[in-house]
């Protein structure tokens, strides 16, 4: 299966996101075609200062999808996902604005002929790929690893249309499908502090503390994420926490392990809180 892929700015230098996405997609036959010369989506920053520029940034990404013939754009970052979906919704409802924006894009030879669907890679893995592709391949010991699924804010919100906004299940179900033990917990969509974590570490650390404490209380050995910002905040945010650090692998890294891929090929050595002890459970 072929998809237009919007990696976003945080993808490349992350804790093995790129490595694991590529390895898993290869293993299950998903082809992610990177949109050539894509630009930043503006995240929550551009829209905070300049709405029109924010719309132009995301609109250019849609125009690239039109140019290369993709009716859907797949992302791996919750912030990109929401930035794109929000502009899509606005442009869908406002033909006048769409025309104005197309007029801006024409100088570069671009234009939006079709507003592409915006999808998270999790949706592709969970909805498009036959469940059988994931099951039955897991090495012994995978079931001994207790995983908490952490969705963050921007996958299920603002509209609560992708999954339940407070008690989403998609990632839980996917992790279960892979053969892991999934723990129930109430921190699935709590906020990690997002982009405020960097300038306001002390103020945001309690948010991470709350998430880690909750999943640990429920028996999780790892907490898995699907957004580079969530991963960094949960991973780096445990720096001053008492008690053993909790590894924060991407859902794609867990998928790779369940498919029998090697930890190094999945970039698992790039996690700040090491996962080595748990890897020894896998045989």
């Amino acid at each position: 299966m072929k998809y237009g892929f919007y990696p976003g700015c945080s993808y490349k230098s992350e804790a093995g996101y790129k490595e694991s996405v590529e390895a898993v997609c290869r293993a299950i036959g998903v082809e992610l075609r990177e949109l050539p010369d894509w630009n930043c989506c503006g995240a929550t920053s551009m829209i905070s200062m300049d709405a029109e520029n924010a719309h132009l940034l995301t609109a250019r990404i849609f125009a690239l999808a039109s140019k290369y013939g993709f009716d859907a754009v797949v992302t791996t970052c919750n912030a990109c996902y929401t930035a794109l979906r929000k502009t899509r919704k606005i442009l869908k409802a406002d033909a006048g604005l769409l025309a104005v924006i197309n007029h801006q894009l024409v100088a570069e030879g671009l234009g939006i002929t079709l507003l592409p669907k915006v999808r998270h890679l999790l949706e592709v893995f969970y909805q498009d790929i036959d469940a059988a592709a994931w099951t039955g391949k897991s090495p012994a010991g995978i079931g001994d690893i207790a995983v908490a699924a952490y969705y963050g804010c921007q996958l299920t919100r603002p509209w609560g249309d992708v999954d339940h906004p407070e008690r989403p299940q998609m990632l839980d179900e996917f992790i279960k499908r892979l053969g892991y033990t999934v723990v129930d917990h109430s921190a699935r969509t709590l906020c990690c502090g997002a982009s405020h974590f960097f300038p306001y570490q002390d103020q945001c650390r309690p948010l991470v503390d709350k998430i880690i404490a909750e999943v640990r209380r429920k028996g999780a050995q790892v907490v898995t994420t699907l957004c580079p910002l969530c991963q960094l905040n949960l991973d780096a945010g445990q720096e001053t926490r008492k008690g053993p650090p909790m590894p924060v692998p991407y859902f794609t890294q867990l998928a790779g392990l369940a498919l029998g891929l090697s930890p190094v090929a999945l970039g698992l050595d790039k996690l700040l809180n090491p996962i080595d002890t748990l890897l020894r459970k896998i045989r």
Partner: peptide, 8 residues
């Protein structure tokens, strides 16, 4: 922080 918890 744009967590959209209020909005939803």
């Amino acid at each position: 922080v744009s967590c959209y918890q209020c909005m939803v």
